[in-house]
Computed example of a mutant assay.
Amino acid sequence: MDATPSRFPTRRLMIAGALAAWPAHGLAQQRRVVTILGDSITAGYGLPASAALPAQVQAQLRKLGADAVVRGAGVSGDTTAGGLARVDFSVQRDTDVCLVALGGNDLLQGIDPKRTQANLDRIVARLKTRKIGVVLAGLAPPPVIGRAYAREFQAVFPAVAKAQGITLYPNLLAGVAQTPRLNQQDGFHPNAQGVAVIAQGLAPILAKALATRG
């Protein structure tokens, strides 16, 4: 009789553990997850969450038939070095595809493009090691940036994409940069309309990336 009661707690724990694990496993099987690793644009600077890039990309993906959860992993002011330092915990393990959208603050700070390239290479390599699909968003420097530096900086993104064998979205701010009606008063951060333009451009690329992962 002493042995019988001692088996019950163990059995209850086993059953409880199985029940707790089942819903999480079911959800993981059903949903797809896109994480956007970025800076203030990803973080939705100056915008409500509903108008920020993650929410708008998610809405555009659903219009394309890709029912995915889009998570924002943006930190305002972050450089590629900052993204590298936090990529392992900012991009959760259930992520199917990660959009890496970093580099704008490197550009503003005049960081050596070689350092930016090395950081992006390492970010992408870490994500690939974790079996996470990667799309890299590039940037086109504004006209006020010196030509030599701008040329060297812009070349970073296609170089990383080629070396790592990943998809490149050439310019995150295509159709938005230098267009006052699509930007906030600071001239750097897109407003809700500008974010909508960005999301419309990104969604087909991300939908394709999700589709290739089965």
Rank of each mutant, 00 (worst) to 15 (best):
P143C: 11
L61N: 06
L139V: 04
K63V: 09
R151E: 15
Y169L: 05
A137S: 15
Q193W: 10
F188G: 09
A51R: 14
L84G: 00
G103M: 12
W22I: 10
G44V: 05
Q164I: 03
A192W: 04
P143W: 12
A3D: 12
A49H: 01
L99N: 15
D96A: 14
G138F: 09
G187H: 11
H25D: 06
Q60F: 09
A20S: 07
K63N: 06
L27C: 02
V197K: 03
I15T: 12
A85T: 01
S50C: 04
G38M: 15
Q184N: 11
A163D: 15
I36A: 13
Q184S: 10
G103C: 15
D112A: 11
D2P: 05
A81G: 05
A196N: 06
G138T: 11
L139G: 03
M14Y: 09
S40V: 12
R12C: 14
R130L: 01
P141D: 02
N105Y: 00
P48Q: 05
A150L: 06
S76M: 02
P170M: 12
T212V: 13
G83P: 10
S76H: 01
V34N: 02
R122F: 06
D88Y: 00
G77L: 00
A3E: 12
Q30A: 10
A174V: 10
T35M: 03
N119I: 01
A159I: 04
